[in-house]
Protein backbone atom coordinates (compact mmCIF):
# COMPACT_ATOMS: atom_id res chain seq x y z
CA UNK A 1 0.00 0.00 0.00
CA UNK A 2 2.58 2.55 1.16
CA UNK A 3 4.92 1.53 -1.60
CA UNK A 4 2.38 2.18 -4.31
CA UNK A 5 1.20 5.44 -2.75
CA UNK A 6 4.70 6.87 -2.38
CA UNK A 7 5.83 6.26 -5.95
CA UNK A 8 7.81 9.45 -6.68
CA UNK A 9 7.22 9.32 -10.43
CA UNK A 10 3.44 9.05 -10.06
CA UNK A 11 3.37 11.86 -7.51
CA UNK A 12 5.27 14.14 -9.89
CA UNK A 13 3.00 13.15 -12.75
CA UNK A 14 -0.08 14.09 -10.74
CA UNK A 15 1.13 17.29 -9.10
CA UNK A 16 3.36 18.89 -11.69
CA UNK A 17 0.80 19.79 -14.38
CA UNK A 18 -1.18 21.97 -11.96
CA UNK A 19 1.92 23.35 -10.29
CA UNK A 20 3.52 24.26 -13.61
CA UNK A 21 0.35 25.96 -14.83
CA UNK A 22 0.10 28.09 -11.69
CA UNK A 23 3.82 28.89 -11.79
CA UNK A 24 3.93 29.95 -15.44
CA UNK A 25 0.72 31.93 -15.56
CA UNK A 26 0.48 33.29 -12.01
CA UNK A 27 3.84 33.47 -10.24
CA UNK A 28 6.30 34.16 -13.06
CA UNK A 29 4.22 37.10 -14.41
CA UNK A 30 4.11 38.68 -10.96
CA UNK A 31 7.89 38.74 -10.73
CA UNK A 32 8.14 40.00 -14.30
CA UNK A 33 5.74 42.85 -13.54
CA UNK A 34 8.18 44.28 -11.00
CA UNK A 35 11.01 43.82 -13.49
CA UNK A 36 9.18 45.46 -16.43
CA UNK A 37 8.53 48.37 -14.10
CA UNK A 38 12.24 49.14 -14.48
CA UNK A 39 11.89 49.50 -18.24
CA UNK A 40 10.95 52.10 -20.78
CA UNK A 41 8.90 49.99 -23.17
CA UNK A 42 6.08 50.64 -25.64
CA UNK A 43 4.93 47.02 -25.75
CA UNK A 44 6.26 46.19 -29.19
CA UNK A 45 9.78 47.57 -29.51
CA UNK A 46 12.85 46.84 -27.41
CA UNK A 47 12.91 47.42 -23.66
CA UNK A 48 15.27 50.05 -22.29
CA UNK A 49 16.45 49.66 -18.74
CA UNK A 50 15.85 52.92 -16.90
CA UNK A 51 16.24 51.79 -13.29
CA UNK A 52 13.77 53.20 -10.81
CA UNK A 53 12.61 56.07 -13.06
CA UNK A 54 9.07 54.71 -13.43
CA UNK A 55 8.71 54.20 -9.71
CA UNK A 56 10.03 57.71 -9.04
CA UNK A 57 7.58 59.16 -11.54
CA UNK A 58 4.83 57.21 -9.81
CA UNK A 59 5.54 58.98 -6.53
CA UNK A 60 4.79 62.38 -8.07
CA UNK A 61 2.02 61.34 -10.44
CA UNK A 62 -1.08 63.07 -9.08
CA UNK A 63 -3.39 61.17 -11.44
CA UNK A 64 -2.07 57.95 -10.00
CA UNK A 65 -2.58 59.09 -6.41
CA UNK A 66 -6.11 60.16 -7.33
CA UNK A 67 -6.75 56.61 -8.51
CA UNK A 68 -5.30 55.25 -5.26
CA UNK A 69 -7.57 57.62 -3.32
CA UNK A 70 -10.64 56.44 -5.27
CA UNK A 71 -9.71 52.79 -4.66
CA UNK A 72 -9.38 53.49 -0.95
CA UNK A 73 -12.75 55.30 -0.92
CA UNK A 74 -14.37 52.28 -2.58
CA UNK A 75 -12.74 50.04 0.02
CA UNK A 76 -14.17 52.20 2.82
CA UNK A 77 -17.67 52.25 1.26
CA UNK A 78 -17.53 48.48 0.79
CA UNK A 79 -16.51 47.91 4.39
CA UNK A 80 -19.26 50.19 5.71
CA UNK A 81 -21.84 48.46 3.53
CA UNK A 82 -21.04 45.20 5.32
CA UNK A 83 -23.06 46.64 8.22
CA UNK A 84 -26.17 46.83 6.00
CA UNK A 85 -25.64 43.27 4.79
CA UNK A 86 -25.20 42.10 8.36
CA UNK A 87 -28.42 43.82 9.40
CA UNK A 88 -30.33 42.18 6.52
CA UNK A 89 -28.87 38.78 7.45
CA UNK A 90 -29.88 39.15 11.09
CA UNK A 91 -33.43 40.05 10.04
CA UNK A 92 -33.49 37.07 7.64
CA UNK A 93 -32.39 34.84 10.51
CA UNK A 94 -35.25 35.93 12.82
CA UNK A 95 -37.86 33.23 12.13
CA UNK A 96 -38.78 34.59 8.71
CA UNK A 97 -40.83 32.36 6.42
CA UNK A 98 -39.26 32.08 2.98
CA UNK A 99 -35.85 33.27 4.14
CA UNK A 100 -34.26 30.63 1.93
CA UNK A 101 -35.99 31.92 -1.19
CA UNK A 102 -35.24 35.56 -0.32
CA UNK A 103 -31.59 34.72 0.15
CA UNK A 104 -31.54 33.21 -3.34
CA UNK A 105 -33.26 36.23 -4.88
CA UNK A 106 -30.69 38.51 -3.25
CA UNK A 107 -27.91 36.46 -4.78
CA UNK A 108 -28.98 36.78 -8.43
CA UNK A 109 -27.02 39.95 -9.35
CA UNK A 110 -23.84 38.31 -8.03
CA UNK A 111 -24.09 35.69 -10.79
CA UNK A 112 -24.07 38.18 -13.65
CA UNK A 113 -20.95 39.43 -15.39
CA UNK A 114 -19.66 42.83 -14.36
CA UNK A 115 -19.93 43.86 -18.01
CA UNK A 116 -23.65 43.02 -18.17
CA UNK A 117 -24.18 44.80 -14.84
CA UNK A 118 -22.27 47.84 -16.08
CA UNK A 119 -24.28 48.00 -19.31
CA UNK A 120 -27.55 47.61 -17.45
CA UNK A 121 -26.68 50.36 -14.96
CA UNK A 122 -25.58 52.65 -17.79
CA UNK A 123 -29.18 52.41 -18.95
CA UNK A 124 -30.55 52.84 -15.44
CA UNK A 125 -28.46 56.03 -15.05
CA UNK A 126 -29.28 57.31 -18.54
CA UNK A 127 -29.96 61.05 -18.07
CA UNK A 128 -33.25 61.23 -19.98
CA UNK A 129 -34.69 57.73 -20.41
CA UNK A 130 -33.06 55.89 -17.54
CA UNK A 131 -35.02 54.14 -14.84
CA UNK A 132 -33.64 56.30 -12.04
CA UNK A 133 -34.32 59.72 -13.53
CA UNK A 134 -37.76 58.60 -14.78
CA UNK A 135 -38.54 57.54 -11.23
CA UNK A 136 -37.30 60.86 -9.84
CA UNK A 137 -39.36 62.76 -12.44
CA UNK A 138 -42.41 60.74 -11.41
CA UNK A 139 -41.92 61.99 -7.85
CA UNK A 140 -41.68 65.53 -9.17
CA UNK A 141 -37.93 66.13 -9.05
CA UNK A 142 -37.22 68.80 -11.68
CA UNK A 143 -33.46 68.84 -12.11
CA UNK A 144 -32.32 65.27 -12.41
CA UNK A 145 -28.55 64.89 -12.64
CA UNK A 146 -26.51 63.09 -15.27
CA UNK A 147 -25.15 60.69 -12.68
CA UNK A 148 -22.04 59.47 -14.42
CA UNK A 149 -20.97 62.84 -15.83
CA UNK A 150 -20.84 64.77 -12.55
CA UNK A 151 -17.36 64.69 -10.98
CA UNK A 152 -18.81 65.03 -7.49
CA UNK A 153 -21.32 62.19 -7.85
CA UNK A 154 -19.73 59.68 -10.20
CA UNK A 155 -17.90 57.56 -7.61
CA UNK A 156 -21.03 57.22 -5.47
CA UNK A 157 -23.08 56.41 -8.58
CA UNK A 158 -20.59 53.66 -9.43
CA UNK A 159 -20.75 52.30 -5.92
CA UNK A 160 -24.50 51.57 -6.10
CA UNK A 161 -24.18 48.78 -8.71
CA UNK A 162 -21.25 47.40 -6.69
CA UNK A 163 -23.54 47.30 -3.65
CA UNK A 164 -26.22 45.67 -5.80
CA UNK A 165 -23.81 43.08 -7.17
CA UNK A 166 -22.26 41.94 -3.89
CA UNK A 167 -25.19 42.24 -1.44
CA UNK A 168 -26.36 38.66 -1.97
CA UNK A 169 -22.85 37.29 -1.62
CA UNK A 170 -22.21 38.79 1.82
CA UNK A 171 -25.75 38.07 3.00
CA UNK A 172 -25.20 34.44 1.98
CA UNK A 173 -22.03 34.21 4.04
CA UNK A 174 -23.47 35.95 7.11
CA UNK A 175 -26.72 34.02 6.96
CA UNK A 176 -24.86 30.69 6.81
CA UNK A 177 -22.72 31.73 9.78
CA UNK A 178 -25.79 32.81 11.80
CA UNK A 179 -27.54 29.52 11.02
CA UNK A 180 -24.52 27.69 12.42
CA UNK A 181 -24.94 29.20 15.88
CA UNK A 182 -26.20 26.44 18.19
CA UNK A 183 -29.82 27.01 19.15
CA UNK A 184 -29.11 26.28 22.84
CA UNK A 185 -27.02 29.44 23.13
CA UNK A 186 -29.86 31.60 21.80
CA UNK A 187 -32.43 29.81 23.98
CA UNK A 188 -30.23 30.25 27.06
CA UNK A 189 -29.98 34.00 26.43
CA UNK A 190 -33.74 34.21 25.88
CA UNK A 191 -34.45 32.42 29.16
CA UNK A 192 -32.14 34.88 30.88
CA UNK A 193 -34.49 37.58 29.61
CA UNK A 194 -32.43 39.02 26.75
CA UNK A 195 -34.38 41.00 24.11
CA UNK A 196 -34.00 40.09 20.42
CA UNK A 197 -31.80 43.16 19.97
CA UNK A 198 -29.57 42.13 22.88
CA UNK A 199 -29.34 38.59 21.51
CA UNK A 200 -28.30 39.92 18.13
CA UNK A 201 -25.68 42.31 19.49
CA UNK A 202 -24.32 40.41 22.48
CA UNK A 203 -24.70 36.76 21.46
CA UNK A 204 -24.86 36.45 17.68
CA UNK A 205 -22.38 39.11 16.58
CA UNK A 206 -19.49 37.96 18.80
CA UNK A 207 -20.08 34.37 17.70
CA UNK A 208 -19.68 35.20 14.01
CA UNK A 209 -16.84 37.70 14.49
CA UNK A 210 -14.44 35.33 12.70
CA UNK A 211 -16.58 35.44 9.56
CA UNK A 212 -16.98 39.20 9.84
CA UNK A 213 -13.19 39.56 9.80
CA UNK A 214 -12.94 37.38 6.69
CA UNK A 215 -15.54 39.51 4.91
CA UNK A 216 -13.70 42.71 5.83
CA UNK A 217 -10.58 41.34 4.15
CA UNK A 218 -12.63 40.29 1.12
CA UNK A 219 -14.34 43.68 0.83
CA UNK A 220 -11.15 45.72 1.13
CA UNK A 221 -8.93 43.58 -1.05
CA UNK A 222 -11.74 43.16 -3.60
CA UNK A 223 -12.19 46.93 -3.80
CA UNK A 224 -8.49 47.57 -4.33
CA UNK A 225 -8.61 45.27 -7.37
CA UNK A 226 -11.86 46.64 -8.76
CA UNK A 227 -11.84 47.07 -12.53
CA UNK A 228 -14.43 45.64 -14.97
CA UNK A 229 -17.45 47.67 -13.93
CA UNK A 230 -15.62 51.01 -13.85
CA UNK A 231 -13.80 50.33 -17.12
CA UNK A 232 -17.12 49.71 -18.88
CA UNK A 233 -19.28 52.34 -17.16
CA UNK A 234 -17.03 55.40 -17.18
CA UNK A 235 -13.57 54.35 -18.32
CA UNK A 236 -12.34 56.26 -15.28
CA UNK A 237 -14.05 59.49 -16.32
CA UNK A 238 -15.20 62.16 -16.28
CA UNK A 239 -11.65 63.48 -16.29
CA UNK A 240 -10.28 60.80 -13.99
CA UNK A 241 -12.91 61.27 -11.28
CA UNK A 242 -13.71 57.55 -11.15
CA UNK A 243 -10.25 56.22 -12.03
CA UNK A 244 -9.04 53.38 -9.79
CA UNK A 245 -5.63 51.69 -9.63
CA UNK A 246 -6.41 48.81 -11.99
CA UNK A 247 -8.11 51.03 -14.58
CA UNK A 248 -5.19 53.49 -14.46
CA UNK A 249 -2.75 50.63 -15.01
CA UNK A 250 -4.81 49.35 -17.93
CA UNK A 251 -5.05 52.77 -19.52
CA UNK A 252 -1.32 53.49 -19.20
CA UNK A 253 -0.33 50.10 -20.63
CA UNK A 254 -2.92 49.16 -23.21
CA UNK A 255 -4.20 52.58 -24.34
CA UNK A 256 -1.14 54.85 -23.98
CA UNK A 257 1.36 52.03 -24.65
CA UNK A 258 3.49 52.91 -21.65
CA UNK A 259 3.97 49.27 -20.73
CA UNK A 260 6.92 49.98 -18.46
CA UNK A 261 5.03 52.59 -16.47
CA UNK A 262 1.89 50.44 -16.48
CA UNK A 263 3.95 47.60 -15.01
CA UNK A 264 5.14 49.89 -12.22
CA UNK A 265 1.50 50.70 -11.42
CA UNK A 266 0.61 46.98 -11.57
CA UNK A 267 3.46 46.15 -9.22
CA UNK A 268 2.33 48.82 -6.78
CA UNK A 269 -1.18 47.32 -6.95
CA UNK A 270 0.24 43.89 -6.12
CA UNK A 271 2.32 45.16 -3.20
CA UNK A 272 -0.50 47.23 -1.72
CA UNK A 273 -2.90 44.28 -2.01
CA UNK A 274 -0.49 41.91 -0.26
CA UNK A 275 0.42 44.41 2.46
CA UNK A 276 -3.23 45.27 3.11
CA UNK A 277 -4.16 41.59 3.35
CA UNK A 278 -1.29 41.03 5.76
CA UNK A 279 -2.09 44.06 7.95
CA UNK A 280 -5.81 43.33 8.22
CA UNK A 281 -5.09 39.73 9.11
CA UNK A 282 -2.64 40.79 11.81
CA UNK A 283 -5.06 43.37 13.15
CA UNK A 284 -8.04 41.05 13.21
CA UNK A 285 -6.27 37.82 14.13
CA UNK A 286 -7.09 36.37 17.50
CA UNK A 287 -5.73 33.24 19.11
CA UNK A 288 -8.65 30.93 18.56
CA UNK A 289 -9.28 31.52 14.88
CA UNK A 290 -6.53 30.36 12.64
CA UNK A 291 -8.74 31.09 9.65
CA UNK A 292 -7.26 29.57 6.54
CA UNK A 293 -8.16 31.76 3.61
Amino acid sequence: MDKVMSNKLMIALYVLPALIMVSIFVFVPLVLTGYYGLMDWNGIGAMNFIGLENYKELLFDLKFWDSVYHSILLAIFSTLSLGIYLLISIVLDSKIKGSDLLRKIYLIPMLLSSVAIAQLWLKIYHPTNGMLNSLLAFFGVDHTPDWLAEPQIVLYAIFVPILWQYAGFYILIYYAALKNIPNELIEAARIDGASPLQIALKVKLPLISGIIKVTIVLAIVGSLKYFDLIYVMTGGGPNGHSEVMASYMYKEAFSSHNFGYGSAVAFFLLIITLITTYIIRKLTASKEDEVQY
Partner: peptide, 11 residues
Protein backbone atom coordinates in the same frame (compact mmCIF):
# COMPACT_ATOMS: atom_id res chain seq x y z
CA UNK B 1 -4.64 36.20 -3.20
CA UNK B 2 -3.16 37.48 -6.44
CA UNK B 3 -4.77 40.45 -8.23
CA UNK B 4 -4.98 39.34 -11.87
CA UNK B 5 -4.27 42.86 -13.12
CA UNK B 6 -0.76 42.68 -11.70
CA UNK B 7 0.02 39.75 -14.00
CA UNK B 8 -1.67 41.10 -17.10
CA UNK B 9 1.20 42.87 -18.86
CA UNK B 10 3.73 39.99 -18.56
CA UNK B 11 1.03 37.52 -19.61
Amino acid sequence: MIPVHSALIPL
